[in-house]
Design a binder for these strands. Structure first.
Lengths: 206, 206, 206, 206
DNA sequence: CTTTAAGCGAGACGGTACGTCCGGTCTTATT
DNA sequence: AATAAGACCGGACGTACCGTCTCGCTTAAAG
């Protein structure tokens, strides 16, 4: 959900791998370059040449280790998934969902963020699509606790399908901002959260 | 919502415009070629060269009239919007939503359809993104009647925000199939429709 | 025989073809660049990139029209064959052969000339080898008159195998300078001519 | 003259040097690989990578010991010169020359032999060119006896320039097959031998 | 009907990026 | 401490598209 996490994940992973050794350093610099280029120029600006130049590394090195842009994205996404993000805990289901949606909203609202670029990339590279899927599955798994807490509090009937509930809450935000590309509406995250919470209370996901 | 409509829209429009003149014929053949190529090779296979060759037209002709691939997509999408599609009318809100979702589901489930290709294209070309947005807005506007009928039947409290309701119903299908890329689940359209209908009955969109 | 002729042939042809039109100009500049690079850097310096840069033309243009280095050489050689060279006429067979050999000697003695480079190239590119073969066949054909004049003068018994005679006369010069790479000996052309003339008078080629 | 001798020389030398010691074994395997690759793929197929792989040795080992492809060729040629070849002795000058030419002819006629590859290599690597020159000088020195025998028999006037005579005899064969690349003519070796013998009898090399 | 200008066919060009191969150097890990 | 394995840099290759340009030729529509 937190789409800004990948970015920090990249830097973090990079920092951690910079343990000496040329190979590790090269990898870190290349992945940093990928993140930076995606932010600045989007997926179309993410050419192997540009990555190599920015990373201060030779083109052939990138091809040797990552094969193509898809391989770079996979490495970036897998590194990004390797963080400590946890879902918010506001004390109520609607509050948690609204906070989640707010994170998504902020990551997508500009239309030029890293997340948008990664999603665009996932439509071009099957490997990147898979890696992005893995990233999201991991996030949804971490968020299951939001639903179980709500059930424990008696807000919603147990047992509930946490994944369906979370998708119902977040999907409209992705849909409006990524696909419909309507002008960002700050009320959107809360509205989607409220509707989903209402459905959940009515037992729609149990 | 009917994502297969663009395809038929293309052929239909093409047929209608084939009124004699060379220009009209060229346009029809080019747009047909675009659709066919999108289906066969996806957005990445949609090169100006390939379109021109397939349409039996010279490259420069395509550049002259459409400028680039984005222009081709705009033309295709605008032609696709020019049809007579109307939303289903099953007698109940949940039934209507489920039928809508089913159309979306079928258009997206394969992952290789024209719709998927157009959406992928919308991440690469700003013009195509806009045209796709217009197409979807048109569809949502036509679907408003589904919500007003439900209100008239007393299924849901009036007045209801038809757009928010429709987005809530369809977004999960797009989200699962396009972004999360989970394995297609035939129960998905109905489940999303049911949850949204429940929320609507609970007044979540009023 | 005159191995310096290719060089002049190139410039000449270039000048003649520079009759307007971008294509003709491009061709002329590229062929000039090939000749210059062969002289300066030998065959190993004759890369498509270097040719393109020197000709002030884009790499892809060279690939489009000449395909590869072999194609460039073929064009150069065919252009070079398109001249008005005629064999010397000194009044005696031995004098003619010595003059021919002197031309060969001068073209090869430095070891860095255009001719040497073209021959080196012919070992790398089958097309270039063929073109060079054509060039030399043309030269031998033009030289046949040297032999027929000698027969007409009664120097040698008629009929004589002009090609075998000419090869016998010139081959030692090529052999010493190109293959054995012995230090250039100014007496070599005359010696080979004298020996061959002696054999011819003895009826060795009749 | 015997251009097939290098090949046998390689194998022979290799076998002889396989006397234990990893270094010696490595050298033998690498030189074998060079010969095999030259035969199969010509000079252009003789890459350090291919040699190393075929010899079962690491790339860096080749670079350490031979520096580059030229160094490999020098080693091969010097090993090849280290044999016991002696010129034919048929009882007549013309017979000896014809036999010599026949050996040359057979080594060159296919156009794909090891000899051709080594000659091609000599146009690319100065070191290889030198080594090949040394190889040929050694061969011509061994052949001097052919001329002295002829003089002793009174076939030709003494003293004769054996080197010039031998070059005159063999050069046409090299010239036709390597440079002119005419279709191989089985009569060529004998014809060149006969013409040279005639010239020699006429005192052209004395 | 004619004419006339917009549109098309044809082909070359400059340019960016691709992905590969190879030469040669340098670093890391091993022993 | 020496060396084998492996990664790197650098240059060239040949290809695919992109988008532009210039020339003729057709042909649809205006006079």
């Amino acid at each position: 959900m937190d789409s800004s996490t990948p970015a920090s994940g990249i830097s973090e992973g990079a920092a951690r791998r910079r343990t000496g050794g040329r190979s590790a350093r090269v990898r870190a610099e290349v992945l940093d370059a990928v993140g930076a280029l995606l932010l600045e120029a989007g997926y179309d600006g993410l050419t192997v040449d540009a990555v190599a130049e920015r990373a201060g590394v030779h083109r052939t090195t990138v091809y040797r280790r990552w094969r193509d842009v898809g391989g770079l994205l996979v490495d970036v996404l897998d590194a990004a998934a390797d963080d400590t993000w946890t879902p918010p805990d506001t004390g109520s289901l609607e509050g948690d969902l609204a906070a989640l949606n707010q994170e998504v909203y902020e990551a997508l609202a500009s239309g030029t963020g890293l997340t948008t670029a990664l999603i665009a990339a996932s439509f071009r590279s099957a490997e990147a699509a898979e890696a992005l899927g893995r990233f999201w599955e991991d996030r949804y798994a971490r968020c299951a606790v939001v639903v179980s807490r709500a059930a424990a509090r008696g807000e919603i009937p147990a047992p509930a399908d946490s994944r369906a509930l979370l998708v119902a809450a977040t999907a409209p935000v992705y849909h409006e901002l990524l696909l419909l590309r309507t002008a960002p509406d700050p009320a959107l995250p809360g509205r989607a959260a409220a509707a989903t919470a209402a459905a959940a209370r009515a037992g729609a996901f149990s």
